[in-house]
Design a protein around this nucleic acid. Structure first.
Lengths: 108, 108
DNA sequence: ATATTATATTATAATTTGGTAATATAGTAA
DNA sequence: TTACTATATTACCAAATTATAATATAATAT
């Protein structure tokens, strides 16, 4: 494997790692609805403020979301361009997983 | 957030976590070329056998790859349906990241 | 100025993940 | 049978990730 490729995989892995957490996926999905302030996101997730804030900052660092400050509030929005395609791909794997499990059970 | 959604995000996160590693991304990319035996993959990656084997088994467990045994060799192949769309989405974010960094530097 | 509110950051402890060496398994060959 | 080869699994330690509590910051209001 070429060193250049190695580097590309490393970069891609960073993006995927940033998405690979239930709360962060929930945030991304929630923001699909449009810009939200942190307080909304905290309410929606029902998680501790510091926890949500840390996940948000990771998403921002990675360039998946954008922020805008207005008074005391900070508004987060998606910069992630292709949520639908992306997740339908993931869900496709999930469906297969499920079908395989069903097939195994059928054999009993 | 509904508990059902929570579960979906957890499942999705598991798939993404399985992909979110440089070596595993390299494997997925390499398999895009067609079925390969473990020995080929080890050579390609230049990593320890046990390490490669562990990454492969994770990919299999998650349903991202499939295996077929032939004599002493085990052949791995992609079950992942939409590599191109998927990664172009990730690369899109990487490009934006890069452009933003460039823009920041320009301001000096 | 002080108080209040929304959000971010830091420190910490628990858990998970990653790499390696050693060992196990399973197929083939002699 | 024994030996050999390809791959998988296990046990171990180091490093990264996570959630929480505590603290800090920054904008507004009094």
């Amino acid at each position: 494997m070429k060193p250049v490729n190695k580097q590309v995989y490393k970069y891609r892995a960073e993006i995927l790692k940033a998405l690979a957490h239930p709360l962060r996926l929930a945030i991304v999905d929630y923001l699909g609805d449009g810009e939200k302030c942190v307080c909304d996101i905290i309410d929606y997730l029902g998680e501790k403020q510091s926890n949500v804030s840390r996940h948000l900052s990771l998403l921002r660092q990675t360039g998946i979301v954008d922020t805008r400050k207005e008074g005391l509030n900070v508004y987060y929005s998606l910069k992630f361009p292709c949520t639908n395609n992306f997740f339908s791909c993931v869900d496709n794997i999930l469906q297969r997983q499920h079908e395989e499990k069903k097939a195994v059970l059928k054999q009993l």
